[in-house]
Design a protein around this nucleic acid. Structure first.
Length: 537
RNA sequence: GGGCGAGUGGCGAAGAGGCUAACGCUGCGGUCUGCAAAACCGCCAUUCACCGGUUCGAGUCCGGUCUCGCCCUCCA
């Protein structure tokens, strides 16, 4: 039984979907006038995990996320840049996808855009006018909040309360100060669409009402977004949709908490925001995803770089466990039977799997669920340590199943365990391989000075070195510079030559050549070049 | 002013009436290792902002105080 915290009722409620085993989900997407910032990225990851989890629990999820690509901010920005608003909006939709893809956010079923739904929007506005929920004034159309008696139910305040501390400038033409625009008359030079009320564009809230109902029906199961959308955006969506259809709009309203910086909300107006693209330049995307998922979605999340460093180390622990299993597991695990120890091991994992599920069932408690993954990692590592000599067939069967469970939860649901496939690192890996070989020889000869010099270089280059029972493993978060590694190798060769150790010197050169690096000893010193660009790709 | 929410170890973060206050990071000790790294084992909150109350029993419920954040205006 899945429970979700519903902003509408301020309680955790059992998730009962409209149709059994189906979830209709709508999440408010960005207004596309800039790159998204980290605060925008939180709901992407949060609702992506919620969606993945619901699927894991057997729901068929229809996920819709809109793009608000018609908006004052877009128009203003486009004006500044001297390009059409539509072009600007389009560009940032594309940029959005680059960011979302990097974070491992699965594609939605539908990505409706305002610009492509004008007839639908106009039809709903007309319907609201016909029913007496809206009125037009000089080419503008306003929603009549007094006509909808549930107004304020989501944000938990009455119209009177809103007026009490209101900071709204009163537009004399409006019947009620809280009435909001459904259609805005175009000013000269602004993009516009024709309508029964004259040329103009939709107000901010109407598009979500229209597009969600178009793709998901009059009533949706889950409507999500950031907590700052509760009022006025979602409140107004409810007013529009329910007035239009006479039916409940969304059964469950889920809202994620903010990202803060120095405990202040990260926001565009405060200027304390971090563009996601910049963060992704410095930190791996899975680290960022882990950071966003390691705290419960409704809690505030304070940001600074040290939090990402910590997230990277924590996630590294989980990934290390996966890597250890992969190193010991052959491509194909032959079917076999478990032994007693293996069964006991799997029983423990299964208990943890159940704890994980219970945590996620309880309003998607990813923080607690992550705790279960760390418990699992420890169990798996322990089991692996106890079989350091190598895996016998029953142990292989056990580890194979353990891997399945671990990745099911960690990758399929959380989306944080995909080990980056090092692309473009082919040559670097070959160079590192040569160094590992050289160091291995030195260690065999108990020449630890040499061995440590190589390791020191590797570590200084950002490469981790671990000597395991099965050999030396080198890993890195960021691909080290090829040139740096080659220079080091050639420096090493030069030393060997000076010491008249031509065996070593020639071996290094031969290996470089074999890897596609040409080495020339010129009068000015050593020159090298990479044979074919193909090697780098 | 009105509405909402939060205050848990050095840090981050779960727990929402009752087994030893998860988990991660950091630090310390140990095992393993040529030394490391990784991994494993152990240690690090008699106490959950403060004061009262309810209860056999309260981080967990109630009342009050303090501090902080958010919304009421574009914002995920």
């Amino acid at each position: 039984m899945i429970k979700v915290y519903n902003t509408l009722t301020r309680k955790k409620e059992e998730l009962n979907t409209l149709e059994p085993h189906k979830v209709k989900m709508y999440v408010c997407g960005p207004t596309t006038y800039n790159y998204i910032h980290l605060g925008n990225a939180r709901p992407l990851v949060v609702f992506d995990i919620i969606r993945r989890y619901l699927q894991y629990r057997g729901y068929e999820v229809t996920y819709v996320q809109n793009f608000t690509d018609v908006d004052d901010k877009i128009i203003n920005r486009a004006l500044e840049k001297g390009i059409p608003a539509s072009e600007l909006a389009c560009k940032y939709v594309e940029e959005y996808f680059r960011d979302a893809d990097a974070l491992g956010v699965k594609r939605a079923e539908f990505y409706p855009r305002v610009s492509e739904h004008m007839p639908d929007i106009i039809q709903v506005i007309q319907g609201l006018i016909d029913k007496g929920y809206a009125y037009q004034v000089e080419g503008d159309v306003y929603y009549r909040v007094n006509a909808f008696n549930g107004y304020g139910k989501l944000s938990g305040r009455s119209l009177e309360e809103m007026l009490a501390g209101a900071r709204v400038e009163v537009d004399e033409r409006k019947e009620h100060p809280m009435d909001f625009a459904l259609w805005k008359k175009a000013k000269p030079g602004e993009p516009y669409w024709d309508s029964p009320w004259g040329p103009g564009r939709p107000g901010w809230h109407i598009e979500c009402s229209v597009m969600s109902m178009k793709y998901l029906g009059d009533t949706l199961d889950i409507h999500g977004g950031g907590a700052d959308l509760i009022f006025p955006h979602h409140e107004n969506e409810i007013a529009q949709s329910e007035a239009y259809t006479g039916k409940p709009f969304a059964r469950y309203w889920l809202h994620n908490g903010f990202i803060t910086v120095n405990r202040e909300k990260m926001s565009k107006s405060l200027g304390n925001f971090f563009i996601l693209r910049d963060i992704l330049d410095k930190y791996p995307a899975d680290t960022v995803r882990f950071y966003l998922a390691a705290t419960h979605y409704r809690s505030p999340l304070d940001f600074d770089n040290t939090k990402l460093e910590e997230a990277g180390r924590a996630l590294g622990r989980l990934k290390n466990t996966l890597r250890r299993m992969d190193e010991l597991l052959p491509e194909q695990v032959e079917p076999g039977v478990l032994d007693e120890a293996g069964q006991a091991f799997l029983d423990v994992l299964d208990r943890l799997r159940q704890e994980f599920t219970a945590a996620m069932d309880d309003d998607f408690n990813t923080a607690r669920a992550m705790g279960c993954l760390f418990d699992m990692a420890r169990e798996i590592n322990s089991y692996l340590d106890s079989r350091a000599g190598g895996l016998n067939p029953p142990a292989r069967v056990a580890i194979n199943r353990a891997r399945q469970v671990f990745t099911d939860l960690g990758e399929r649901i959380m989306g944080i365990l995909k080990l980056r496939t090092e692309t473009g690192a082919g040559l670097v890996d070959e160079m590192l391989g040569i160094l590992v070989e050289l160091r291995g020889t030195a260690r065999q000869n108990r020449d630890y000075t040499t061995a440590d010099r190589i390791r020191d270089f590797l570590v200084a280059s950002g490469v981790n070195v671990e000597d395991t029972s099965r050999g030396t493993r080198v890993t890195y978060e960021q691909v080290p510079e090829v040139a740096r590694v080659i220079d080091f190798l050639l420096g090493w060769r030069e030393e060997a030559r000076q010491a008249r150790d031509f065996t070593t010197a020639d071996a290094i050169r031969d290996k470089l050549v074999a890897a596609g690096v040409t080495v020339k000893d010129t009068r000015e010193g050593v020159r090298w070049s990479i044979d074919s660009a193909g090697k780098l790709s």
